[in-house]
């Protein structure tokens, strides 16, 4: 028994002795060729809309990641999007934890990085800024909601195409099959696509994503493309995404129909004082039928105050106004107070 206590004491003091920086994970093991880190992230928020209030333990996860020589990397994450939702006006909801990401990467060269497993679809800005603490808003824009599956299970190739590393690409293929897709926003098969980027600097980019998939539920064939840009400065940041998608489906009588979706947003963030920022976003989603009549037009404006004393920790107070014209008229005001952190 004494031995066990001694071992635990040595282990704990060893762990306590290591340097820890918020947002950078915890070093579990490290030597010259191999490192293993553990990390976690969580988001707690209070949401209100027309008298419907809820307190959520939102997106959260526990991660393990490591690298063996610079050639091999892996990452595993268990988590969920809305772990527990306490509704003040109706029944509470909860979601089981699930495997969110599990992948391995092999770096052949800077031009060819091969990734296999379950991972974030490597396109867009919002979709790749996965951790709520690192986002400027708790309200997800339309482009990241239903345009393409945010997680894929398959393989991807990523890399730089020139010596200056200013042009980079991602190509991916989502393997067909009955994966656990509860965590996914769009259930799809035969999904493939990619993104071509021009990097003005390591942080600023303009990119063209594209893809095609077949929807699991409706058997629609969807194709999408667009453009996105991210331009950060020392005191402010500008980002925007635009996506165009068209879908084609055949009804039981064999008649083919099609529709088009357009979604976009522009977001601007301004540093105002010490750790305080102001964020403004405007976004829209429009759906057209084959006759090109607008079926509906959904628009929203988000205004937020972000307190970010460290990049890994943020408190956001936001207001969103949403208006839908055309089919199913909506006019709502929403509020969100969120606390997000990554460890």
């Amino acid at each position: 028994m004494k031995k066990i206590i001694c071992i635990l004491f040595v282990l704990l003091t060893g762990l306590m002795a290591q340097e820890y920086k918020l947002g950078r994970g915890y070093e579990i093991y490290s030597n010259k060729e191999f490192y293993l880190y553990g990390g976690a992230h969580a988001d707690i928020n209070y949401y209100t809309q027309s008298g419907n209030n809820s307190l959520r333990l939102g997106q959260a996860g526990i991660m393990l990641f490591g690298e063996y020589t610079p050639k091999f990397r892996f990452l595993a994450e268990v988590g969920s999007d809305d772990i527990y939702v306490h509704n003040f006006n109706k029944a509470n909801e909860s979601t089981n934890l699930q495997l969110m990401r599990l992948y391995g990467e092999y770096l052949y060269s800077d031009a060819i990085e091969f990734k296999v497993g379950q991972f974030l679809t490597p396109i867009g800005i919002w979709n790749r800024a996965y951790i709520p603490a690192l986002r400027w808003s708790g309200f997800t824009p339309y482009v990241a909601k239903g345009f393409f599956p945010k997680i894929i299970a398959g393989a991807s190739l990523n890399g730089s195409l020139n010596e200056k590393r200013s042009i980079s690409y991602s190509l991916f293929y989502h393997v067909d099959g009955e994966q656990d897709t509860n965590k996914n926003n769009v259930k799809a098969k035969e999904f493939f696509g990619g993104e071509l980027r021009y990097n003005f600097s390591p942080l600023a980019k303009i990119a063209v994503p594209f893809g095609r998939f077949r929807s699991n539920s409706s058997q629609e064939i969807c194709r999408f493309t667009g453009i996105n840009t991210l331009i950060p400065f020392e005191k402010n940041e500008f980002s925007s995404e635009f996506l165009y998608k068209d879908g084609e489906w055949t009804n039981s009588e064999g008649i083919s129909n099609n529709w088009q979706d357009i979604a976009w947003y522009i977001q601007y963030v301004q540093h105002i004082y010490k750790s305080s920022y102001l964020s403004v976003r405007y976004g829209e989603q429009r759906r057209f039928r084959s006759s090109n009549d607008v079926t509906w037009n959904d628009a929203n404006e988000v205004l937020g105050y972000v307190y970010r004393p460290k990049t890994a920790l943020s408190i956001k107070l936001e207001y969103r106004h949403r208006a839908r014209t055309g089919l199913n008229f909506i006019n709502t005001d929403e509020g969100l107070l969120s606390f997000s952190v990554l460890f």
Partner: peptide
């Protein structure tokens, strides 16, 4: 911070 949670130090 963003790269860390892609497994890159």
């Amino acid at each position: 911070d963003e790269l860390y949670f892609m497994g890159i130090k």
